[in-house]
Simulated scan of single mutants.
Amino acid sequence: MSSDTADSRLSSILEHVARAARIARREPSEVQLIAISKTHEAEAIRPLIVAGQRLFGENRVQEAAAKWPALREAAPDIELHLVGQLQSNKAEEAVALFDAIHSLDRPSLIAALARAMDKTDRRPPCFVQVNIGDEPQKGGCAVADLPALLAEARAAELPVTGLMAVPPLGVEAAPYFALLAKLARDHGVSGLSMGMSDDYETAVTLGATHVRVGTALFGARI
């Protein structure tokens, strides 16, 4: 990706985010754009860093550990967010590497993250992932299990900052975003990690604080 392409794509998405925020009578600054750089090499990521993007999302701990230390040397203010499923045995590495974790979804991971945070003395904010469409193939806790999971995370003193979800493919996303926003309100959390390349504007109008955009920034994967 060229610098010009990175500039134009980033500017376009930020303009769309701002427009959607204004429609919802929100400030554009309330929404953070996470560039989903999973599977992309450093050469494809650097132009976005040069264009000013500072929040990036990765799915896998090992992939992020391999490419981000060098990329961060040029821009120490980069924030790296883990947006993929996290195995409990990778919790300590994830806490050391990432600035936020969007996939807290089960009691065993709560325990692993609590131990890792105590050991590393780092406390990256966590989003509880909700299986908002009740899809067996997807990660995330069931809606019915959310109150208990949040209570357990808070008892473990994890810094839970919000909820995250991925709506089912091929259906209108708005009702799922609205449900996640209601769940967040009901449970006293303000962060909403929702919306991707095809639906981030809808997510912003319904309260998203973090949108996770990959394809619209990097282009379709080959």
Score class of each variant (00 low, 15 high):
162 G>N: 00
107 P>Y: 12
48 L>W: 12
47 P>T: 03
91 A>Q: 14
117 M>T: 01
73 E>G: 09
84 G>T: 06
8 S>H: 10
193 S>M: 13
216 A>H: 07
144 A>L: 10
205 T>Y: 14
144 A>T: 07
130 V>F: 08
120 T>R: 15
159 P>K: 05
78 I>N: 02
8 S>Q: 13
217 L>E: 01
59 N>H: 13
114 A>T: 14
131 N>T: 08
105 D>C: 11
46 R>V: 10
147 P>W: 12
189 V>Q: 08
210 H>F: 09
214 G>Y: 06
72 R>S: 04
83 V>Y: 04
81 H>N: 03
104 L>C: 06
179 L>Y: 01
9 R>G: 03
70 A>Y: 00
74 A>H: 07
189 V>N: 07
67 K>C: 06
22 R>P: 00
168 P>H: 08
193 S>L: 12
222 I>R: 14
130 V>S: 08
197 S>G: 00
97 L>I: 00
168 P>T: 03
166 V>A: 08
205 T>L: 11
9 R>P: 00
126 C>F: 02
49 I>M: 15
168 P>S: 02
208 A>K: 11
55 L>G: 10
94 A>N: 05
13 I>M: 06
79 E>G: 04
104 L>M: 07
53 Q>I: 09
130 V>C: 08
56 F>L: 03
195 G>P: 06
187 H>N: 15
118 D>P: 00
57 G>T: 09
24 A>S: 04
92 E>N: 13
166 V>G: 04
159 P>M: 05
1 M>K: 07
25 R>G: 04
219 G>L: 12
169 L>V: 11
87 Q>G: 05
132 I>L: 09
105 D>T: 04
157 E>A: 12
15 E>T: 14
10 L>P: 03
128 V>P: 07
159 P>D: 01
66 A>C: 06
73 E>Y: 04
90 K>E: 00
140 G>T: 02
52 G>P: 07
124 P>K: 09
203 A>V: 09
22 R>C: 01
135 E>M: 10
132 I>S: 03
132 I>R: 10
9 R>E: 03
161 T>Y: 01
22 R>I: 01
115 R>V: 09
27 E>Q: 13
153 A>T: 04
95 V>N: 12
125 P>I: 09
9 R>L: 10
46 R>F: 13
222 I>A: 11
95 V>M: 14
171 V>A: 12
179 L>G: 02
143 V>D: 06
220 A>M: 11
102 H>G: 03
22 R>Y: 05
33 L>E: 10
73 E>K: 11
12 S>W: 05
141 C>A: 13
46 R>W: 15
116 A>R: 07
146 L>C: 15
165 A>T: 03
152 E>K: 11
174 A>Q: 10
31 V>P: 05
91 A>G: 13
146 L>W: 15
13 I>W: 09
93 E>N: 14
98 F>A: 09
50 V>I: 12
189 V>F: 08
150 L>M: 03
126 C>G: 02
111 A>P: 08
160 V>K: 00
111 A>D: 15
205 T>I: 12
99 D>T: 12
50 V>A: 15
143 V>M: 14
86 L>R: 05
86 L>G: 06
126 C>H: 02
42 A>Y: 15
116 A>Y: 05
221 R>P: 01
32 Q>N: 09
184 A>F: 07
142 A>P: 02
69 P>C: 06
170 G>A: 02
157 E>S: 13
81 H>G: 01
169 L>R: 14
209 T>G: 05
144 A>F: 08
124 P>S: 06
29 S>N: 05
176 Y>V: 04
